[in-house]
């Protein structure tokens, strides 16, 4: 007697294809259905922050170890250069603090007292790792952070806003991300313009041809008067109705290790 085995391995509905369909379906559900995504994100981040912390500690330990093998003379020169730079920056900060004090006193005398609450957060993942040009920090809902909070660096340089919040971490979308647009005010005459992100802290904007803008002029956000960058290039062609200005953040965006998140603006 012959028994014919119904071998459906070559059919479309075999176990492998069913497993693939289930995997794709489950992943799509977890990503596209917002409540599911929030729950999964919360769970993943309970582990992820620990994993990144372990990686950071390992890198620091390796760097400490590797220092022993670096050329001593080079280290001495580097130390001297960094000390000089630190002294220069400290003087600039002191000058800026004095200026900020004067502005605050002036505003108080005019009856316009402004202030904000800021949360300092360490950068856990920088934008180079993310395919979305996002930054992950180690402060979240427990510190009072909510969606849309603005993120600044070095006191007043705005770099982005919060786009996702977990209990103990948040994701920041950089304003300079390629394709992102932002309304800004350019120069001492506050010329309104739309800044287009070009990545790595760089922006591009167009202003009317007769606008009085120059290299070195500051660009600020429309809300909060926070500094977005300074103009580095002005491209003007008399035949065109606009000038193109290129500006960038006044610091190296790849070397940001901590940021401030404005959680409450009192005005």
């Amino acid at each position: 007697m012959l028994y014919h085995q119904n071998n459906s391995r070559d059919g479309f509905l075999n176990r492998k294809n069913i497993a693939l369909a289930v995997l794709i379906g489950a992943s799509a559900f977890a990503l596209l259905y917002t409540p599911a995504r929030s729950t999964v994100t919360e769970g993943v981040y309970m582990v992820a922050t620990g994993v990144w912390g372990f990686g950071g500690a390992t890198t620091n330990a390796w760097n400490s170890f590797a220092t022993n093998f670096r050329d001593k003379e080079r280290l001495i020169r580097e130390n001297a250069m960094l000390s000089a730079e630190l002294a220069r920056v400290e003087a600039q900060v002191l000058d800026r603090n004095l200026l900020a004090e004067k502005v605050t006193k002036l505003e108080e005398s005019l009856g316009r007292v402004r202030g904000d609450d800021r949360v300092v957060a360490e950068v856990v993942v920088d934008h180079g790792q993310s395919p979305y040009d996002t930054v992950v920090v180690d402060a979240g809902a427990e510190e009072g952070i909510i969606l849309g909070n603005v993120v600044v660096y070095a006191g007043s340089g705005v770099i982005g806003e919060i786009i996702e919040v977990s209990s103990n971490s948040s994701k920041i979308k950089l304003f300079s991300s390629p394709g992102s647009e932002r309304a800004v005010l350019v120069g001492p005459h506050y010329v309104p313009a739309n800044a287009l992100g070009r990545g790595m802290g760089n922006f591009e904007a167009k202003v009317p041809q007769d606008s009085l803008v120059a290299i070195g002029d500051t660009i600020v956000s429309t809300k909060g008067n926070l500094i977005l960058g300074t103009i580095s290039v002005v491209e003007e062609k008399p035949a065109e109705p606009f000038k193109r200005i290129f500006f960038r953040v006044p610091f190296n965006i790849t070397e940001i290790h901590s940021v401030e998140i404005i959680v409450d603006k009192r005005s």
Binding site: A30, S130, Y132, T134, E164
Partner: peptide, 9 residues
């Protein structure tokens, strides 16, 4: 999940 958000591309 690690790096993205629903509001992104």
């Amino acid at each position: 999940i690690l790096y993205g958000a629903p509001t992104l591309s």
